[in-house]
């Protein structure tokens, strides 16, 4: 059976990894290829590179990064951040990415998911969703002038979590799968960075309703958190960033712990 994937996520700004690995003897902690090699040797099952470059004229740099990394590291590579068109996706895939994640642009135009899935196959298209718990139920205006209380428990944020939308995370997850996304990468903005565990309610709600694989993101702090995302949240893969980069937990120990907890894992020696 499939193993649970453990995925480090690297933020890349103008071709350089920010918040780079800071605990091992790495010559250049900002070099994406060097870090990719390191995580491959640590047993990472996949890598996610998130392009956080603000200016669009620096985007070509990301293509070079993917070119270089994929010439050296032969595990699946997902690239996201600023993907707006089929053409953007093609460039990343041709540069050597296995999958490309879309976020804001897909919400603005869900057809983008469909077009990309048709052209490249669903397996290439990852729908990234930034989710935040709804604190106060929103009032939604009806066309007859009245209003309803929205049922959404989580709402979608876009633009790197800076912009709120009125979209229900669960509905958007289902829609994304129907439009042809091959995988969901769901980040809990509430849990992100707090190390209190993944939002298993959120994960469970999605995984019970959507049949495509789900990557859990945001909130990992302990070994058990990774296990819970799978056993309680129903996630197929677990993602973390700074936890790995700062060496608080090593990928190998996370995987060993998950295996000891009875989950099927790919253990590398």
């Amino acid at each position: 059976m499939l193993t649970t994937r453990v995925i480090p996520c690297l933020d890349v700004d103008q071709g350089r990894v920010v918040k780079g690995v800071s605990f091992v003897d790495i010559r250049d902690a900002g070099d994406p290829a060097e870090l990719a090699r390191f995580y491959d040797s640590e047993g990472a099952d996949e890598l996610v590179f998130l392009d956080i470059t603000a200016s669009s004229d620096a985007r070509n740099t990301m293509v070079d990064v993917v070119e270089r990394v994929s010439a050296e590291v032969f595990i699946p590579l997902t690239v996201g951040g600023g993907i707006r068109s089929r053409e953007d996706m093609r460039r990343m895939l041709e540069a050597g990415a296995e999958k490309v994640s879309v976020n804001s642009a897909a919400l603005a135009n869900p057809k983008l998911i469909e077009e990309c899935a048709e052209e490249f196959g669903s397996q290439c298209v990852v729908l990234a969703i930034d989710a935040k718990r709804v604190e106060e139920p929103a009032m939604i205006e009806r066309s007859d002038g009245g209003s309803d209380i929205a049922e959404a428990l989580w709402q979608v944020y876009t633009h790197g979590g800076r912009r709120a939308t009125a979209v229900d995370v669960i509905k958007w997850s289902r829609m994304g799968a129907e439009f042809g996304a091959g995988e969901l990468l769901v980040t809990s903005m509430d849990a992100d960075g707090r190390k209190t565990g993944y939002d298993c309610d959120l994960l469970r709600t999605i995984s019970s309703q959507v049949s495509i694989p789900l990557i859990a993101s945001g909130g990992a702090g302990t070994l058990d958190h990774f296990v819970n995302a799978v056993t309680d949240g129903g996630a197929d893969a677990v993602l973390a960033a700074s936890l790995f980069h700062y060496g608080e937990l090593r990928i190998q120990e996370v995987k060993s712990h998950m295996a000891e907890s009875g989950l099927p894992m790919r253990l590398v020696h």
């Binding site: 059976m1 499939l2 193993t3 995988e183 049949s211 129903g234 197929d236």
Partner: peptide, 17 residues
């Protein structure tokens, strides 16, 4: 379904024996 009763996902995506 698999033996754990969990629904199997399609695509078959990931590392398998």
């Amino acid at each position: 379904g698999n033996s754990n009763g969990r629904r199997l996902k399609v695509p078959h995506m990931g590392w398998n024996k």
